[in-house]
Design a protein around this nucleic acid. Sequence first.
DNA 1: TTATATTGTTAGCCGGACTAACGCAACGGG
DNA 2: CCCGTTGCGTTAGTCCGGCTAACAATATAA
Lengths: 164, 164
Amino acid sequence: MNSGAPDTADLSGGEATPARLRNLPTRLLALTALHSDRLVTEGLAGADARQWHYAVLATLEESGPASQAELSRRTRIYRSDLVAVINELADRGFVERAPDPADRRRNVITMTGQGRRQLHRLDELLAAIEDDVLAPLTRIERRQFTELLARLLDHHGRSRRRDA
Amino acid sequence: MNSGAPDTADLSGGEATPARLRNLPTRLLALTALHSDRLVTEGLAGADARQWHYAVLATLEESGPASQAELSRRTRIYRSDLVAVINELADRGFVERAPDPADRRRNVITMTGQGRRQLHRLDELLAAIEDDVLAPLTRIERRQFTELLARLLDHHGRSRRRDA
DNA sequence: TTATATTGTTAGCCGGACTAACGCAACGGG
DNA sequence: CCCGTTGCGTTAGTCCGGCTAACAATATAA
């Protein structure tokens, strides 16, 4: 029927969100995060990357080669999901996966030169995206914002759920 | 832990997140929102409710009976998902769904007395949850936080797809 | 030794955001 | 008056991220 254009409602009437919802911090947080995530995902997609790629590469550069379990703990990516991420990174030549001779259960993940280059590309890309997301805020406000988030996060961060 | 790993010697179980990630606003935002969402969802579950329920009830109280499409626009719940929400609310006797005699395409959704009571219960519940989420912040910081979120949201909220 | 824990891996669940399509009703021209 | 277009409610289904469960291989502890 109406094939082609997705049905587009307008705001002619200007139905507004109720005040109760407009001031709910948790709601604002959720919506903002959703939007931010979208921008990040889209942005990284342009570089054939995903957020987790960045997390893993950044971790590797900061603390050197690591097992997958270790990466999982550091990045908070579930180890079940991590395997796919490592696969992707390995496919693109950004990391190498090798069995650990010292502990044969483990794989040692090492970042390659290309990986390092990619990381720095992502660094720039991400900086631009962050800048976009935070566009309406001044530098000081951005600092405030980040700091508040950090406080919230680590306050509640204690109740971290590791897999059983 | 037992990590006798050669070079990546780290402390007792406390693998830290790399600084690059720790300071990424988008990441902090995502993690915080995730955590907040979890608290809200769990909290509301205790009252056999979901976030959407609150959004709909609040909207109804603020602007009176409305069609589903109208509710969809106001709450930003997709109209396809809204039908389930209305079903749930109707099942619990919080709203009534009746065909609109004036426009027979429409349903008129009306909040019942029970619905109003439930809304106020949720008001209190949610206030407690918000308080929990924002626990580490002072009153002033909470205001700041909320205001910053609101700014971010409506800056980007306008340009991007509203309800397309 | 036997028991328990850790690691990498596969598979799958669940819920939220979102799209597509359909039948029906309304509205506005011609 | 019919007709194309638009809005409405509804069903179904996609996609993706967080998360659980189970398993084989290996390591460690009792």
